[in-house]
Amino acid sequence: CYLFLDDLHLLTDARIACFLCHLANRLPENVHIIAAGRDRFLPESEIVRLGSRLHRIEAEQLRLTREELSAYTARCGLSLTDAQ
Rank of each mutant, 00 (worst) to 15 (best):
C21V: 13
G51H: 09
E60N: 12
E29A: 11
A36D: 08
D6C: 08
L8P: 01
A24N: 07
E46Y: 07
E68A: 12
A24S: 15
R66I: 06
L69R: 12
H32P: 00
A59K: 08
R53S: 14
L42S: 04
H9W: 01
R38D: 04
N30E: 14
L42F: 01
I16G: 02
L27Y: 01
A74I: 00
A14K: 12
A36S: 14
L11P: 00
Q84R: 10
S70R: 13
R63S: 11
A14P: 15
R56S: 14
F4Q: 10
R49T: 08
L42V: 03
L42C: 04
L23H: 00
A24Q: 04
D39H: 11
L8N: 00
C18T: 11
A35T: 03
L10H: 09
L8H: 01
E60M: 04
L64A: 10
E44H: 05
R53G: 09
R40A: 10
L23K: 04
L23M: 10
H55V: 06
D7Q: 09
F41C: 03
F41D: 00
L10R: 15
A24H: 03
L62Y: 02
C18E: 13
T12Q: 15
T12K: 15
R40K: 06
G51P: 10
R75I: 04
H22A: 05
T81E: 13
D39T: 12
N25C: 14
I47D: 04
T73E: 13
S79W: 08
R53F: 03
N30T: 08
I47G: 01
A71S: 12
F4N: 09
S70N: 11
R38A: 07
I57W: 06
L78M: 14
R40C: 06
I16D: 05
F41L: 12
T12H: 15
Y72D: 12
L27H: 00
D6N: 14
G51D: 11
C1K: 10
A24G: 11
F41W: 13
L78D: 01
I34S: 07
I16T: 12
D7R: 07
E29G: 08
